[in-house]
Computed example of a mutant assay.
Amino acid sequence: MFGELLKRLTATDPTRLPDPDARLALAALLVRIARSDGSYDADEVAHIDRVLAERNGIGPFEAAKLRAEAEALEAEAPDTVRFTRAIKEAVPYEDRASVIEALWSVVLADGVRDHEEDAMLRLTANLLGINDRDSALARQRVEARG
């Protein structure tokens, strides 16, 4: 099912992903961050669904379906370096900055700021071209929203 997308993600020179593929790749990145601490709980799943619904202007059932597809893709996806490189090519910088906010919101969804999630998010932000300062500001905005 994800063969063509995985092929593009693993290419040495990934081409720009079409919108539906980029949307799925970003959803898989949210799942990857949530799973990075070895715990993927209902709060994180529900939060990912809300983020996907808001970012994509879709309803809860479509968001849950997208997340389920993203979970399967994330399980099969190559390393985060190639994965984020492909996303970086497909998503404009302004949107990548908002992706970091979405990632922080997933990290903080379960009320526990785990070291593994912090490390994965720091790596991901860097790979997406977002510096530590901007990532920290994104985290602070998410924390302020509660």
Rank of each mutant, 00 (worst) to 15 (best):
E62A: 15
D41Y: 06
E44T: 06
E44L: 03
S39N: 15
I33C: 15
L52Y: 02
I58W: 02
G57D: 10
A34Y: 05
H47C: 10
A27D: 01
R32M: 14
K65Y: 08
G57M: 12
S36H: 07
R32K: 15
E62Q: 14
I48E: 01
L26R: 10
R50P: 00
V31D: 02
D43S: 12
R35C: 14
I58R: 05
K65M: 10
G38T: 10
H47A: 11
E44W: 02
S39M: 15
V31C: 11
R32F: 12
A53W: 03
I48L: 07
R35G: 12
H47M: 09
D41F: 05
V51P: 00
K65N: 07
A53L: 06
R23H: 08
E54D: 14
A22Y: 12
D37C: 11
N56C: 08
A28H: 06
G59H: 05
E62D: 10
V51I: 08
V51H: 00
E54H: 11
E62G: 08
V31S: 07
L66Q: 08
R55F: 05
S36Q: 06
A53S: 13
K65C: 04
A34P: 07
L66G: 03
A46L: 08
A63S: 10
A64T: 09
N56V: 05
L26I: 00
L26V: 07
A22C: 13
A42M: 13
A25V: 09
S36A: 14
I33T: 15
A46C: 05
A28V: 07
A46S: 13
N56R: 09
V51W: 00
E44K: 07
D37L: 06
A27K: 05
A27L: 06
N56P: 02
A46N: 09
R23V: 11
S36P: 09
S39A: 15
A22K: 14
A22Q: 13
A64H: 05
A34M: 07
A28C: 06
R55E: 06
A63G: 04
P60S: 13
I58N: 03
A63Q: 03
A63T: 02
R35V: 13
L26C: 03
R35Y: 12
S36N: 10
L52R: 03
L30A: 14
R50D: 01
E54I: 10
L30K: 10
E54C: 08
I58M: 09
I58Q: 04
A27Y: 02
E62H: 10
A28E: 02
K65F: 11
G38Q: 09
A22V: 12
Y40N: 09
R50Y: 00
E54G: 12
K65H: 12
A34C: 08
R23Y: 00
A64L: 03
D43P: 00
V31Y: 02
R55M: 06
I33L: 15
L24C: 02
A22S: 15
R23E: 06
D43Q: 12
S36R: 07
H47V: 06
R55P: 00
P60A: 14
E54Q: 13
